[in-house]
């Protein structure tokens, strides 16, 4: 029985679910742009909006601990890098907050938009551009959004199998990273090899 986890689409009947694919994509771009440009009050309003969205969509945050940790680390690194350059202050904190809000928007968006819908919406919005490979990019987007959650699921299973053999007792962070990353990368390459063969077999 599958558990609902990071980047998984979850069927529903919310307002966001009922928007057409292109509408969701435009909304994503608008909220992302607002997140990246807003000042303190704007960011507070966006936080309220995303909180409301989270309460309605109920993404499985409990199953996203790794991804949320990643977002926090990235935001921290961003702030650290900015602070070294400009000194620590409000703009540095705001940039880190913006990053987290954009990440949060992405989580809500993928919760309410099916991968195929996102790919089709991208194609709808871009096919008028001459010589632009909209169809091909649609396939790439759909494949990426379909297989990313599967890879995350695999990663969770790898982690569970390792914990079953008491891996959590290892305290060395390098060893812990190695045993998490190595099987995951190995699995990703094997899976991508299978996918590319399956696509080649159907003349992609």
């Amino acid at each position: 029985m599958a558990e609902i986890a990071f980047l998984h689409y979850r069927p529903g009947r919310t307002l966001l679910h009922r928007l057409p694919g292109w509408g969701k994509l435009l909304l994503l771009l608008a909220v992302t742009a607002a997140c990246s440009r807003s000042a303190l009050i704007g960011l507070a309003l966006l936080t309220a909006l995303l909180t409301t969205g989270s309460l309605v969509l109920k993404p499985a945050l409990g199953k996203m601990k790794g991804a949320l940790m990643f977002a926090l680390i990235m935001a921290g690194l961003l702030a650290f890098s900015d602070a070294r350059q400009f000194g620590f202050g409000t703009p540095v904190i705001l940039r880190a907050v913006r990053f987290i809000l954009i990440f949060w928007t992405g989580i809500l968006f993928t919760t309410a938009a099916h991968p195929a819908e996102i790919g089709d919406a991208f194609e709808t919005l871009t096919r008028w551009i001459p010589h632009f490979p909209a169809r091909r990019l649609n396939t790439h987007i759909t494949l990426t959004l379909t297989f990313l959650p599967l890879i995350m699921d695999e990663s969770a299973t790898v982690d569970r199998a390792a914990r079953s053999r008491c891996f959590h007792r290892r305290k060395n962070p390098l060893v812990r990273i190695r045993y998490r990353v190595e099987p995951l990368v190995d699995g990703v390459f094997r899976k991508s090899d299978e996918i590319s063969r399956a696509m080649a077999a159907r003349c992609y």
Binding site: S164, H168, Y179
Partner: peptide
């Protein structure tokens, strides 16, 4: 504690995901 992990051994369905 960890003793239960040793006493009850789980072999997962997909062996590839168990190998590290």
């Amino acid at each position: 504690g960890d003793e239960i992990r040793r006493r009850v051994g789980l072999v997962f369905q997909n062996s590839d995901l168990q190998f590290v």
